[in-house]
Every structure is written in structure tokens, then in C-alpha cells.
Design a protein around this nucleic acid. Structure first.
Length: 593
RNA sequence: GGUCCGGUAGCUCAGCUGGAUAGAGCAACAGCCUUCUAAGCUGUGGGUCUUGAGUUCGAAUCUCAACCGGAUCACCA
């Protein structure tokens, strides 16, 4: 029985009344007061019919008399501060220590199946900072869901069709001179991105020339031969023209190779990838079926619409007059294919908050079409990443490229490590490995520690700082713990399976155990709130607490053998929680740095 | 204009299922490396939690309104 339950039952006995969970408000005692847990007694006043202080004293005395867990108490206003017996903390540490899975629930074969869609890139541009946030959040969420026992399928929907791809293809055809990733030494996604930009440049030039001839902007756009060619290419693609399709395939394969490299370096992966080129036609079928069933309606021009006014939304277009699909249609098709492939219980879309409306609509449409997961679909909506100067604008060249950023982080990690002498005595291979781990750790932690829903500011200079609330600070603490454990082993000391009681331990040590003991709840909360940030901030608190402990107390030089082993065990478990917690964030943790 | 989201130290962020004197990091200043890794630790300064009302024994937290910022309301994806 845990303390919460103990207190709950004790109060019921004391007042001979049933009480609700919300009436037992137990919280961590604030640092400035003596005690571990604090009971707020205001909700109990009606039962005790006494003033707050008297009530608190009464409950305190009762608990102290009847339960050995409590060693002492004090009352300040309506707050009952309970001091918990040292033996209890040692028991808790023993329990934590013996838990193999660390409070992570093993995946059950019959658990609900959660599909998580994330990343979802376009094939005409390399990944940028916004994608990094998406990828990290998506991957981390998948890890967290799995840690809570769900079956998880990670999926990616690649937007591989449409006019934007044709622009790149056209530019490459016209001005590429047969350039390939091999011939240029460029990553495929960057190569294609360059031609996308080139198209835009040439298109603008053309518009300018046309406007110089006295045409209005709209007229110029309508007369643009480049745009006409791109559209013609899209028509050919949709008609299955061999040459076009073959070029499309080749160029896409370059892009995918480039993406894979970035994904791999970021440490994210997928169980199943869908391509819009394969799903958009399915969506059309679904919509037509819905039309037949009377769920949707058709306008005179032949376009198909959904009437969502009853749900407080507008009418939404699903198929154009010419029968081609729109974005929404494709998402319906993708949902259909996915459901055919997996018995999905819950669908989570990791997509930016600029699409909140889209997913509101999608949820309603899928529900109307009979998808069970439709109504309960989760749009894991995250905020944008802004730069200190404002939003990223591709036109102004202020987009932060994912590969460049990663490289810069790793490079800085390397330099800083070198300056601090951390890499002395390392082989080149080890040095490279550590820089990679630390650089990526800094980047990932910087992004994951903030509440996903909020827009965040990404300051390149600050993100590269490795002091304070950063990934490397936490990684460093882990490395130091490992070092202590190694040295202990050299001394012939090892951590036993269980530690004997009767130790006198200090407040700081109790605090640490108390934090360690809440790891389970934190992991659960992170899943419920869809927020890796909760785990990140928890680990930071733990590490900060541990660092103070580490400086105030010696471990290996402790003379009392029992205490030495206790502190080793405590350290080891702090290390285990850091490692487990960070793995839920997709961050690696080094054994030395 | 309608809808949704946000506003906490100079900056970046925690805290938000109501609880005690609102916390970290960065930046500034002052200390600590013959001691298990100084990517660390300790201390000082820094706040009208945007504003106003309401609910309550108690509000950064809940309700309403206003102000500010962002997103969205496409036959773009």
C-alpha cells in the first residue's frame, strides 16, 4: 500500500466517513519546510468541524500513532507536513532498484494499436528545422506510447506527387545537364531542392519580363510558359506517361536516399511508409462512395462537397469539378489504406498547428464515412519554430536546413569537447562518436524540452550552449555516474540486489529517492498529455538534484561501507532513470565524455 | 470579422486537474579545481504571472470581458 492510500484510509477511519480521492491532497513538501509530504487539510474541515490547525494536528497525531511509515509531523496553517521514516526510503530505493523495466509497461499483445503519423515531407525540398521538431516529437511520442504498453506503428506519408514535384523535374530537365547526386556529390534531396528554387527564380524572371511588356500580374501568370509546361507535366504524370513517370521515379529515389540519411542521423525510423501517389485515388473512391450514400453532395459543376454546417463548420470541397482530388481527399484515402493494413484503435497525426482546422474536418469526415478511429483521432498539434528574427521564410533564405544544423551542432560539440580536454586520450573514432551523441543530444533536448503546443524560438547560439538546462549537461551527469561505478568496480565494490536497512540517510538523499519514485507517473502523464517535454523537465530536475548531492557528499571516499554502497546504488539508479528517460526522447546517453 | 491557440524575470522556458514566500537556465556580478569528470557547484541582484472583474478560506492556475501576439477560415499541399 502506498502512502496516498494509507493516508486515505486513515482519514476515513478517523472520521468514520467515506471520502473521495480529491479530498486527500498530498503533495511534495516545499523545500523551506520540514517534511516530505504535505497534506492540505482544508477539504477535511467539514468533517472534522474544527479549524485548520486543529484538524491538521488531529490527523497528524492519528497517523503517527497508527502507521510506522510516519516519523514525525508539523503543522503550519492548514498544511500538515509529514516526515517519513528513513527506512521507508531505503525500501523504496530497493524496490526501484529491483524493477527491471523501470516502470515502463511491456507492450501487451492485446493492447490498443496506436498509429502515429509523423514527418510527412514533400519530395521537392530538403528537411528543415520545422521537420526536425516534427520528427523528434513523433518519434519520442511513439517511444512514450510504447513505454505505456500500447502497440505502436510509426508511419510516414510522403507527399510525392503534385505540381511542386513537376517544377523540380522540369527545371532539372531544362537546366540540369543530367546532374545526379553521384556526379555532383550532393545529397539527393538538396539537389532536387536546388532545382525547385531554380524553377522559382526562372519563373519570376519570366513574370518580370511579361510584366515589363505591360501585362498585369494575373495575366502574366496565366501566360507563363514555364508554369504551363509544369502543368502539362503533371497531366502527363497523371496519365501515366512513361517518360515522365520514369523521370519522376528516378528523381524521387534520389530524394528518398537523402531523407534516409537525415532520418538515420536523427535516429528516427518508420514501420510503414505511405506515398500519396498510391493513396490519392483511393480517397477519390471513398468520396464517391460517400456521395452515393448521401453523406456528401454534388454541385452542378460536378464538384463534391461535405456539408459540415451542422457541426459548426463550413462546406468543404472534396473533389474538384474535373474530378481531381484535393488534400483532404488524399488524407481520406490514406486513412482507408491504413485501416486495411492495420486494425487501428487510435490514430495520431503529428502535424503543425497551422492545420488544426484541417484535422477538425478530417475527424468529422472519417467519422461520417464510418471509420471507428475517426472521431477520436488525435491531431498532435505542435507550434512553429521561429528564429530570433522572426519566422523562417524560404523566400528570404532564412530557412534553417536540417542537415546543416545537425552538422553545425556536432561540429560545435567537437570543438567544445576538445577545448575542455574531454577528448584527450580518445581515438578518432571515439571522439567522433561522442561529438555526434553530444551535438545531437543538445539539439534534441533543446527542442523537446519545450511544450509541444507552444511556438518556440530557436536561437542558434543558445542551442549550441552546453551549460545549464541542456542535453549535454544531463549526458555529462550520466557519464560521471558511470565513471564512479567503474571506479567502484575497480575497488572491488559492486551494487548488491538489495541494501540492508538501518542507514541514516540525509534529506538530499531522500529527495532524490522521492524524485526517482515518480518516474512511472511521469511517463504515464507524458503519454496522456502527449508531451515529451514533461519527461525532459523531470529528468532535468532529477539531474540538478543529483549534481548537488554529488558535490555535497562523497561516494567512493565515504568511510561507512554501508553508506558507500547505498550511495552507489542511488547513483546507479539515477543513471538508469536518465538513460531510460532519455531513450524515450530518442536521445543517446554516453558512458564517458 | 468567425474559430482555435498563446501572453510568467532583460532573454529562453518550467509551474496551470486551485494551495504555503511563483521556479530553473542564459545573461550580469562575487566565490569554489592538491578531493569520485569544473559541460559542475555556491551566493547576489532581477517579477503588478498582460489588464480588469468574478468564483473561493485560498487564483499564475478556474469563469467572463478587454488588450497584445500567432494560426486558420483556398477548387495550395
Amino acid at each position: 500500500m502506498n502512502i496516498q492510500q494509507t493516508v486515505h484510509q486513515a482519514i476515513e477511519k478517523l472520521y468514520q466517513q467515506e471520502i473521495t480521492i480529491s479530498q486527500v491532497q498530498l503533495q511534495k513538501t516545499k523545500k523551506e519546510f520540514k517534511g516530505h509530504l504535505t497534506l492540505v487539510v482544508f477539504p477535511l474541515l467539514k468533517m472534522s468541524k474544527k479549524n485548520p490547525e486543529q484538524t491538521a494536528r488531529e490527523v497528524g497525531e492519528y497517523l503517527l500513532a497508527n502507521h510506522s511509515v510516519f516519523a514525525d509531523f508539523n503543522v503550519i496553517k492548514g498544511f500538515l507536513n509529514l516526515v517519513i521514516a528513513p527506512a521507508y526510503w531505503v525500501d523504496v530505493l530497493n524496490e526501484i532498484h529491483s524493477t527491471v523495466s523501470y516502470g515502463l509497461t511491456p507492450v501487451q499483445p492485446d493492447a490498443p494499436l496506436v498509429m502515429i503519423e509523423y514527418s510527412s515531407p514533400n519530395t521537392n525540398k530538403p528537411l528543415h528545422l520545422g521537420h526536425i521538431r516534427n520528427n523528434l516529437l513523433g518519434y519520442s511520442l511513439a517511444e512514450i506510447m510504447e513505454a505505456n504498453g500500447y502497440r505502436v506503428v510509426k508511419t510516414n506519408i510522403v507527399n510525392d506527387r503534385g505540381i511542386h514535384i513537376c517544377k523540380s523535374m522540369l527545371a532539372w530537365q531544362k537546366w540540369g545537364n543530367g546532374a545526379t547526386p553521384q556526379s555532383t556529390g550532393k545529397k539527393g534531396d538538396h539537389l532536387i531542392g536546388d532545382y525547385y528554387v531554380l524553377f522559382d527564380q526562372k519563373y519570376k524572371e519570366e513574370l518580370k519580363n511579361l510584366e515589363a511588356k505591360g501585362l498585369k500580374k494575373e495575366e502574366a501568370e496565366a501566360q507563363s510558359s514555364l508554369m504551363a509546361e509544369a502543368r502539362e507535366m503533371l497531366r502527363k504524370w497523371e496519365a501515366g506517361d512513361q517518360e515522365t513517370v520514369s523521370l519522376w521515379k528516378t528523381m524521387n529515389s534520389w530524394v528518398y536516399a537523402g531523407f534516409d540519411e537525415t532520418y538515420k542521423r536523427l535516429g528516427v525510423n518508420f514501420d510503414k511508409i505511405y506515398y500519396e501517389s498510391e493513396t490519392y485515388l483511393v480517397g477519390k473512391e471513398q468520396v464517391l462512395e460517400g456521395l452515393k450514400k448521401g453523406i456528401f453532395y454534388q454541385k452542378e459543376d460536378g464538384s463534391v462537397w461535405a456539408d459540415l454546417t451542422a457541426d459548426g463548420l463550413d462546406n468543404k470541397l472534396l473533389l474538384r469539378a474535373d474530378g481531381t482530388s484535393v488534400y483532404m481527399t488524399q488524407d481520406i484515402g490514406t486513412a482507408k489504406l491504413r485501416f486495411n493494413d492495420y486494425p487501428i484503435n487510435k490514430m495520431v497525426y503529428v502535424v503543425g498547428n497551422e492545420q488544426n482546422y484541417h484535422f477538425q474536418v478530417l475527424s468529422l469526415l472519417l467519422d461520417k464515412l464510418g471509420f471507428e478511429f475517426g472521431k477520436g483521432l488525435v491531431h498532435f498539434s505542435y507550434g512553429m519554430v521561429e528564429l530570433p528574427e522572426g519566422k523562417m521564410k524560404s523566400r528570404e533564405g532564412t530557412v534553417v536546413d536540417a542537415d546543416d544544423l545537425i552538422e553545425e551542432m556536432v561540429e560545435t560539440a567537437k570543438e567544445t569537447s576538445k577545448e575542455l580536454g574531454k577528448l584527450d586520450g580518445c581515438s578518432d573514432e571515439e571522439a567522433k562518436q561522442i561529438s555526434e551523441t553530444v551535438g545531437l543530444g543538445a539539439l534534441k533536448y533543446f527542442i523537446l524540452k519545450v511544450d509541444p503546443r507552444k511556438n518556440m524560438t530557436f536561437n542558434p547560439q543558445e542551442s549550441i550552449d552546453f551549460n545549464g538546462n541542456t542535453g549535454p549537461f544531463i549526458q555529462y551527469t550520466h557519464a560521471r555516474i558511470q565513471s564512479v561505478l567503474r571506479k567502484a568496480a575497480e575497488q572491488g565494490l559492486s551494487v548488491p540486489d538489495e541494501i540492508r536497512n538501518g542507514l541514516i540517510i540525509t534529506e538530499k538523499e531522500e529527495d532524490l529517492i522521492q524524485i526517482l519514485a515518480t518516474f512511472n507517473e511521469v511517463v504515464k502523464e507524458a503519454a496522456e498529455m502527449y508531451s515529451p517535454a514533461i519527461i525532459a523537465n523531470y529528468i532535468y530536475d532529477l539531474v540538478k538534484e543529483y549534481n548537488q548531492f554529488y558535490h555535497d557528499y562523497s561516494i567512493l571516499r565515504e568511510e561507512n561501507e554501508n553508506l558507500k554502497i547505498f550511495r552507489l546504488m542511488l547513483s546507479q539508479n539515477v543513471g538508469r532513470v536518465i538513460k531510460t528517460g532519455f531513450s524515450l526522447l530518442g536521445i543517446e546517453v554516453p558512458d564517458r565524455m
